[in-house]
Amino acid sequence: MRFLFIADPLESFKPKKDSTLAMMVAAQKAGHEIYYAWSESLVSNDAIVTAQVVKISVDKSATTWFTKHHESRESLCNFDAVLMRQDPPFSSEYLANTLLLSQAARLGAKVFNAPNALRDHSEKIAILEFPELIAPTTITRDLALIREFHQLHQDIIIKPLDGMGGMGVFRVGMDGVNLGSIVETLGNNGTRALMVQKYIPEIKDGDNRILIIDGEPIPYLLARIPQDGDIRGNLAAGGKGVARPLNDNEISIAKKIGGKLASRGLFLIGIDMIGSYLTEINVTSPTCFVEIFDQTGYDVASTFIGALEKRILES
């Protein structure tokens, strides 16, 4: 099979821990041809959506982990699977790419995750579909409403809707110090909506990433544990990743969410949980494949490629 990975520049990958590279390695090991396209190379000529693609081979142990073989412009319909792995944030350019991918899908391209599902599921707002699983939450631009929420819950988290890797996450305690300044800065003086949640003390035990492939949870999660007094467990913010098996409650929640979202075209998702609370549903380019493999030996990437092969053959 021919797999096309649409992603950020290859030179920006971090080979030791990149989940997209892990997918490429697993696909190559399974005998598939690997192609790469920079996310900005998508073009529509009349109705046909093409990309500037390069066939590559990969070797994580080499000084330069990828080798380019030949380059051409091809229709996305020429590939057995198109894997959209462009990193967030979900900008206007990301939106434009999903619209082009939707056109390609109408012509027969098999895109994972489905571009319409990417548009419909904001990684932070998507949790509102499961209100029984979330901590007290409000989304607003209104400072007065945020002050009311703070008075009710005393200890809160404020974050932008388009952040990633823990960017722009603030905790405001009982004294409310800097609440107004934080909201004005993050919300650009009331022009951007913010997510405000009750602080969950279990964050000290980790912000738990659970990967779900075609509706089925991977049996190990990665607890991302805050370090050095930080409130953020995100690995990009210095959190420590510790893999452990899912408990029964986590399995039940993952199956409930995974089954529903897989039916909408979200083949790979990563849900984040703090304690028993759902905090985020990652759909753009979920990570943590490598950390789980390194600590448990469970090959998430090979599991992903196997499930992808099955889905392609059944479609």
Rank of each mutant, 00 (worst) to 15 (best):
F149C: 12
R311E: 13
L21R: 02
G168W: 10
L221S: 07
I139G: 05
G259Q: 07
I157A: 05
D8S: 13
E93T: 11
P15W: 04
N208T: 14
D299C: 07
T287I: 11
D248A: 15
G187L: 09
L313H: 11
Y277A: 10
P201D: 12
L10W: 03
F149S: 11
I212A: 03
L133S: 04
G297A: 11
S72A: 14
D142F: 04
D299K: 03
R264T: 13
E216K: 15
G239S: 12
F3D: 00
G270I: 06
R244Y: 01
A51N: 03
D214I: 04
N97Y: 05
N113C: 09
L133Y: 13
K68R: 15
L83Q: 02
R224D: 05
S102T: 14
R147Y: 11
G166C: 12
G108I: 00
P217H: 02
A193C: 04
G233Y: 06
L107W: 06
V183S: 09
L100M: 15
Q154E: 14
R2D: 15
L145M: 14
V49D: 03
A236F: 09
F293G: 01
N97V: 03
L95C: 09
E11G: 12
M273W: 06
G233A: 04
I210N: 00
V54G: 01
R224F: 01
L128G: 07
D18Y: 08
I281T: 10
A81F: 00
L10D: 05
E148M: 10
H32A: 08
V49F: 00
H150L: 07
I281A: 05
P9Y: 02
A236C: 10
N189V: 07
Q154C: 08
S75F: 01
R224L: 07
I6P: 04
A223E: 12
K159V: 10
R224S: 05
H32K: 02
M164G: 13
